[in-house]
Simulated assay, not measured.
Amino acid sequence: MPAPERIPSRSVTTTSVELLAHGELSVRGRIREASNAVLFCSVAYEGESATCVYKPVAGERPLWDFPDGTLAQREVAAYEVDAAMGWGLVPPTVLREEGPYGAGMCQLWIEAAPDGTAPELLALVDRQEPADGWKAIGFAEVDEGRTALLVHADDPRLRRLAVLDAVINNADRKGGHLLPTADGRLYGIDHGVTFNTEDKLRTLLWGWAGEPLTDEAVEVLDRLATDLDSGPLAARLPDLITQAELTALRARVAGLRTSGRHPAPSGDWPAIPWPPV
């Protein structure tokens, strides 16, 4: 199958979830860089149309440390949690029982801003300390015997994403999973390895580790805790993740509210995903 043609998606509207859930999917190409089957599709429903990503469950590779459920279910659960938090960091995502290759996840296609047109989010610099406006991640080997400092922008959008990743226990926040758009928004994608009951947080967004959470984040976590206990989210998530994973999710939110700080690497799990981009 040929590589997909890059077609700008229409803007996200209140009908996006309905369109993705009920529209007719037409496969237009395959994204070959992905480790699991990822198909680029068009979707049409009642006069509305868009482009989207479709990840059939049949195309998933089993993971020994994520034995329960599917990657597709976790992708949808990540969207549901983000939607409840109100930050709009995860593109609209639904679980479809039917598709060209069976059940799977369907997510609105987000067109990233062309290279050089959006503020830089990640960089390698020949410094020992980050410059103003940047946060240090760690040192990386760039040539034989030479290292450089890996940094990310001190950007409020990234900081929100760091909180979301801590909540959903994201084990794979790479640079390639960050999509800044031409209108100034930032999206995060690829949330299949999330919600594990063990601490598996692996991310490039460690720059705020140990720092106090923002007042906004504290308020969002307070609302999320209520939603997870007795709100709509409490009713939706059991269809997507296990009861043990839901219990661990509630515990992570409670832990963040108690500490009031961004988490730091535990030392029990590689802190940075590989490859980082």
Rank of each mutant, 00 (worst) to 15 (best):
residue 101 Y to P: 03
residue 115 D to V: 12
residue 43 V to Y: 04
residue 95 L to S: 02
residue 15 T to C: 13
residue 58 A to I: 14
residue 68 D to W: 12
residue 29 G to N: 06
residue 13 T to Y: 08
residue 104 G to P: 02
residue 95 L to Q: 00
residue 112 A to K: 13
residue 51 T to P: 03
residue 98 E to D: 15
residue 116 G to E: 10
residue 16 S to N: 12
residue 44 A to I: 12
residue 19 L to F: 09
residue 21 A to R: 12
residue 28 R to N: 14
residue 63 L to M: 11
residue 30 R to D: 07
residue 32 R to Q: 14
residue 27 V to S: 06
residue 133 G to E: 03
residue 63 L to I: 11
residue 58 A to L: 10
residue 36 N to T: 12
residue 46 E to N: 13
residue 25 L to N: 02
residue 118 A to F: 00
residue 13 T to N: 04
residue 107 Q to D: 07
residue 68 D to Q: 15
residue 84 A to T: 05
residue 111 E to D: 15
residue 81 V to F: 03
residue 31 I to A: 11
residue 64 W to K: 06
residue 10 R to V: 15
residue 117 T to W: 08
residue 20 L to D: 02
residue 41 C to Q: 06
residue 79 Y to L: 06
residue 12 V to D: 09
residue 43 V to A: 01
residue 61 R to M: 13
residue 120 E to D: 14
residue 106 C to S: 12
residue 26 S to R: 14
residue 29 G to P: 08
residue 45 Y to M: 10
residue 51 T to Y: 10
residue 87 W to E: 00
residue 116 G to P: 04
residue 118 A to E: 01
residue 44 A to S: 12
residue 28 R to L: 10
residue 12 V to I: 11
residue 25 L to S: 04
residue 11 S to G: 15
residue 63 L to S: 07
residue 57 V to P: 05
residue 93 T to K: 03
residue 59 G to D: 04
residue 105 M to G: 01
residue 94 V to R: 04
residue 30 R to P: 06
residue 37 A to R: 09
residue 65 D to M: 12
residue 59 G to F: 02
residue 58 A to P: 05
residue 98 E to I: 10
residue 95 L to M: 10
residue 20 L to M: 01
residue 55 K to T: 04
residue 12 V to R: 11
residue 38 V to W: 13
residue 109 W to K: 03
residue 65 D to H: 05
residue 24 E to L: 15
residue 107 Q to E: 08
residue 89 L to G: 00
residue 92 P to M: 05
residue 7 I to H: 05
residue 33 E to G: 14
residue 92 P to C: 04
residue 102 G to I: 02
residue 100 P to R: 06
residue 57 V to G: 10
residue 63 L to H: 03
residue 29 G to W: 11
residue 116 G to K: 03
residue 96 R to N: 09
residue 71 L to G: 10
residue 113 A to P: 02
residue 87 W to N: 01
residue 10 R to D: 14
residue 49 S to E: 15
residue 48 E to R: 10
residue 7 I to S: 05
residue 63 L to W: 07
residue 78 A to L: 00
residue 59 G to V: 07
residue 8 P to H: 06
residue 44 A to G: 08
residue 129 E to G: 10
residue 103 A to S: 13
residue 121 L to M: 12
residue 15 T to Q: 11
residue 101 Y to D: 09
residue 17 V to H: 11
residue 81 V to T: 07
residue 99 G to V: 05
residue 96 R to E: 13
residue 105 M to I: 02
residue 56 P to I: 05
residue 23 G to M: 07
residue 100 P to E: 07
residue 103 A to G: 09
residue 129 E to P: 05
residue 31 I to V: 08
residue 8 P to V: 01
